[in-house]
């Protein structure tokens, strides 16, 4: 009888102690916000273009965390979808809507002699990449421009072009070697297809 009581008391004491520890740590080490949202947000391209239907990348990250589809980011392309899929451990989806497989990077360019200085594009730019003042010519800070397109529509004189970012020596990158399967098909007789021919 005595032993039972002792056991109960000991267990109770333990429960209280651990409960206190847990409660304290829950308050002390509480993680503010949803860390998964931050992780998703860091994967998204931060163009803030709104093509996903959300006003910016973070709201989309939030809604992805809440269960929205991961394939609504055209600027991110398939790479972003894959990254998101691996992060969230979900299936890789095709990019939603009819977008190019590999999105072309663009930056806004203001034809400065046509600009009337209305500041509409400045207010439209989500990343403050347009410089200018009322009745003064505006210009795009190319390095800051995310190519989100949002400044094109508000321009009353249509002087903003979305220019493809040209490949220069600076941003040139090595191409992946061409697929060797083609050659292996040519080499191994059983792999040969009628269409594939050996280079003479």
């Amino acid at each position: 009888m005595n032993t039972i009581f002792i056991a109960i008391i000991v267990l109770l004491a333990l429960a209280i102690v651990f409960g206190l520890i847990l409660g304290y740590s829950a308050i002390k080490f509480k993680v503010a916000g949803n860390p998964i949202v931050d992780q998703i947000d860091s994967i998204l391209p931060q163009t803030q273009c709104g093509q996903c239907g959300h006003p910016g990348c973070r709201p989309y990250a939030q809604s992805i965390a809440d269960g929205e589809a991961i394939n609504k980011c055209p600027p991110g392309g398939q790479a972003t979808i894959e990254a998101l899929a691996s992060l969230l451990d979900v299936e890789v989806l095709e990019l939603d809507g009819d977008h190019d497989e590999n999105p072309v990077k663009t930056v806004a360019y203001i034809r400065e002699d046509e600009c009337i200085g209305c500041t509409k594009c400045i207010t439209a730019c989500p990343v403050d990449a347009i410089l200018g003042a009322a009745k003064q010519m505006h210009t795009v800070i190319v390095d800051e421009c995310t190519g989100c397109d949002l400044c094109v529509a508000p321009c009353p004189v249509d002087c903003i072009d979305m220019l493809e970012v040209p490949t220069t020596i600076g941003n040139w990158k090595w191409q992946a070697p061409s697929n060797f399967n083609q050659f292996s098909q040519q080499l191994i007789a059983t792999d040969k297809t009628p269409a594939a021919e050996l280079p003479s």
Binding site: P45, Q46, T47, C57, P126, V127, D143
Partner: peptide, 17 residues
């Protein structure tokens, strides 16, 4: 580089917001 740019963009976006 893109990540850096994205971070910058996010910073600027948040600042603007």
């Amino acid at each position: 580089q893109e990540r850096r740019k994205a971070d910058l963009a996010r910073e600027r976006f948040e600042a603007k917001q």
